[in-house]
Protein backbone atom coordinates (compact mmCIF):
# COMPACT_ATOMS: atom_id res chain seq x y z
CA UNK A 1 0.00 0.00 0.00
CA UNK A 2 2.91 2.35 0.52
CA UNK A 3 4.61 4.25 -2.21
CA UNK A 4 8.10 5.60 -2.51
CA UNK A 5 8.44 9.34 -2.86
CA UNK A 6 11.51 11.48 -3.39
CA UNK A 7 11.39 15.20 -3.02
CA UNK A 8 13.58 18.14 -2.21
CA UNK A 9 12.86 20.00 1.00
CA UNK A 10 14.77 23.17 1.79
CA UNK A 11 17.36 22.23 -0.78
CA UNK A 12 17.98 18.69 0.43
CA UNK A 13 16.67 15.49 -1.08
CA UNK A 14 14.51 13.09 0.95
CA UNK A 15 13.12 9.69 0.08
CA UNK A 16 10.56 7.69 2.03
CA UNK A 17 7.96 4.96 1.71
CA UNK A 18 4.62 6.53 2.62
CA UNK A 19 0.94 5.64 2.72
CA UNK A 20 -0.89 7.49 -0.05
CA UNK A 21 -3.16 9.11 2.52
CA UNK A 22 -0.29 10.70 4.42
CA UNK A 23 -0.82 14.45 4.26
CA UNK A 24 2.12 16.54 3.15
CA UNK A 25 2.01 18.48 6.43
CA UNK A 26 2.33 15.26 8.45
CA UNK A 27 5.11 14.08 6.17
CA UNK A 28 7.04 17.32 6.67
CA UNK A 29 6.45 17.50 10.40
CA UNK A 30 6.56 13.91 11.53
CA UNK A 31 8.56 11.98 8.96
CA UNK A 32 11.16 14.54 7.96
CA UNK A 33 11.03 16.71 11.08
CA UNK A 34 10.26 20.17 9.75
CA UNK A 35 7.83 21.26 12.45
CA UNK A 36 7.79 24.93 11.42
CA UNK A 37 4.58 24.66 9.38
CA UNK A 38 1.64 24.05 11.70
CA UNK A 39 -1.81 22.52 11.59
CA UNK A 40 -4.65 24.84 12.55
CA UNK A 41 -7.68 23.40 10.79
CA UNK A 42 -8.82 20.62 8.50
CA UNK A 43 -10.76 22.60 5.96
CA UNK A 44 -8.01 24.54 4.22
CA UNK A 45 -8.98 27.87 5.76
CA UNK A 46 -6.36 28.88 8.34
CA UNK A 47 -3.15 28.71 6.31
CA UNK A 48 -0.87 27.83 9.25
CA UNK A 49 0.48 24.93 7.19
CA UNK A 50 1.51 27.08 4.22
CA UNK A 51 4.74 26.03 2.51
CA UNK A 52 6.16 26.72 -0.91
CA UNK A 53 5.77 24.00 -3.51
CA UNK A 54 7.79 24.62 -6.66
CA UNK A 55 7.87 28.28 -5.72
CA UNK A 56 4.16 28.68 -4.98
CA UNK A 57 2.46 29.03 -1.61
CA UNK A 58 0.27 26.03 -0.89
CA UNK A 59 -1.57 24.65 2.11
CA UNK A 60 0.33 21.50 2.94
CA UNK A 61 -2.59 20.09 4.94
CA UNK A 62 -4.65 19.94 1.75
CA UNK A 63 -2.22 17.86 -0.21
CA UNK A 64 -1.04 14.29 0.03
CA UNK A 65 2.69 13.71 0.34
CA UNK A 66 2.52 11.54 -2.78
CA UNK A 67 1.37 14.57 -4.75
CA UNK A 68 4.63 16.30 -3.87
CA UNK A 69 6.72 13.42 -5.20
CA UNK A 70 9.55 14.79 -7.34
CA UNK A 71 8.84 18.36 -6.41
CA UNK A 72 10.54 21.10 -4.46
CA UNK A 73 9.31 22.19 -1.05
CA UNK A 74 10.44 25.15 1.02
CA UNK A 75 9.27 25.49 4.60
CA UNK A 76 9.82 28.35 7.02
CA UNK A 77 12.98 26.55 8.16
CA UNK A 78 14.41 27.02 4.69
CA UNK A 79 14.15 30.80 4.58
CA UNK A 80 17.09 31.95 6.66
CA UNK A 81 20.42 31.36 4.97
CA UNK A 82 23.66 31.00 6.89
CA UNK A 83 21.92 32.26 10.01
CA UNK A 84 20.75 35.40 8.20
CA UNK A 85 17.03 35.96 8.41
CA UNK A 86 14.96 36.41 5.28
CA UNK A 87 13.87 40.08 4.97
CA UNK A 88 10.27 39.03 5.62
CA UNK A 89 11.27 37.30 8.86
CA UNK A 90 13.21 40.38 9.88
CA UNK A 91 10.21 42.60 9.07
CA UNK A 92 7.84 40.43 11.12
CA UNK A 93 10.25 40.71 14.05
CA UNK A 94 10.75 44.47 13.75
CA UNK A 95 7.07 45.27 13.37
CA UNK A 96 5.80 42.95 16.12
CA UNK A 97 3.75 41.09 13.54
CA UNK A 98 3.32 38.04 15.74
CA UNK A 99 2.22 37.20 19.23
CA UNK A 100 1.70 33.49 19.89
CA UNK A 101 3.60 32.71 16.70
CA UNK A 102 1.48 29.75 15.63
CA UNK A 103 0.20 31.27 12.38
CA UNK A 104 3.52 33.01 11.72
CA UNK A 105 5.37 30.44 9.60
CA UNK A 106 2.43 30.22 7.21
CA UNK A 107 1.87 33.96 7.30
CA UNK A 108 5.52 34.63 6.41
CA UNK A 109 5.47 32.12 3.53
CA UNK A 110 2.35 33.73 2.03
CA UNK A 111 3.72 37.24 2.56
CA UNK A 112 6.96 36.27 0.85
CA UNK A 113 5.10 35.03 -2.22
CA UNK A 114 2.89 38.13 -2.16
CA UNK A 115 5.90 40.42 -2.56
CA UNK A 116 7.46 38.17 -5.18
CA UNK A 117 4.34 38.56 -7.29
CA UNK A 118 3.60 42.17 -6.43
CA UNK A 119 6.67 44.03 -5.11
CA UNK A 120 4.83 47.26 -4.26
CA UNK A 121 1.43 46.29 -2.94
CA UNK A 122 -1.09 48.69 -1.47
CA UNK A 123 -2.38 47.95 2.03
CA UNK A 124 -5.57 46.72 0.44
CA UNK A 125 -3.64 44.31 -1.79
CA UNK A 126 -1.70 43.05 1.22
CA UNK A 127 -4.88 42.46 3.17
CA UNK A 128 -6.51 40.59 0.29
CA UNK A 129 -3.33 38.66 -0.36
CA UNK A 130 -3.40 37.33 3.19
CA UNK A 131 -7.01 36.13 3.13
CA UNK A 132 -5.87 32.54 3.28
CA UNK A 133 -4.06 32.98 6.58
CA UNK A 134 -5.85 33.48 9.87
CA UNK A 135 -4.28 35.16 12.85
CA UNK A 136 -6.21 35.35 16.11
CA UNK A 137 -3.69 37.47 18.03
CA UNK A 138 -2.61 40.56 16.12
CA UNK A 139 -5.69 41.95 14.40
CA UNK A 140 -3.40 41.81 11.32
CA UNK A 141 -2.35 45.46 11.55
CA UNK A 142 1.27 44.78 12.45
CA UNK A 143 1.38 42.03 9.83
CA UNK A 144 0.31 44.51 7.17
CA UNK A 145 2.95 46.89 8.53
CA UNK A 146 5.58 44.16 8.26
CA UNK A 147 4.77 43.31 4.65
CA UNK A 148 4.75 46.98 3.74
CA UNK A 149 8.10 47.48 5.52
CA UNK A 150 9.63 44.49 3.75
CA UNK A 151 8.43 45.86 0.42
CA UNK A 152 9.88 49.30 1.18
CA UNK A 153 13.19 47.78 2.18
CA UNK A 154 13.39 45.65 -0.95
CA UNK A 155 12.58 48.71 -3.06
CA UNK A 156 15.13 50.90 -1.31
Amino acid sequence: MTRKITLKINGKSYSHEVEPRLLLIHYLREVVGFTGPHIGCETSICGACTVELDGKAVKSCTMFAVQADGRNVTTIEGLATDGRLHPMQEAFWNEHALQCGFCTPGMIMTSKELLERSPHPTDDEIRHGLEGNLCRCTGYQHIVNAVRAAAAKAGA
Binding site: T35, G36, H38, E77, L79, F92, T104, P105, I108
Partner: peptide, 13 residues
Protein backbone atom coordinates in the same frame (compact mmCIF):
# COMPACT_ATOMS: atom_id res chain seq x y z
CA UNK B 1 10.52 36.10 18.16
CA UNK B 2 13.67 34.53 16.69
CA UNK B 3 12.43 31.03 17.44
CA UNK B 4 8.91 31.82 16.25
CA UNK B 5 9.82 33.40 12.91
CA UNK B 6 12.23 30.62 12.02
CA UNK B 7 9.85 27.77 12.75
CA UNK B 8 12.10 26.38 15.47
CA UNK B 9 9.82 26.93 18.46
CA UNK B 10 8.38 23.82 20.08
CA UNK B 11 4.61 23.59 20.39
CA UNK B 12 3.07 20.51 21.94
CA UNK B 13 2.45 18.78 18.60
Amino acid sequence: DPRLITGTATYVD
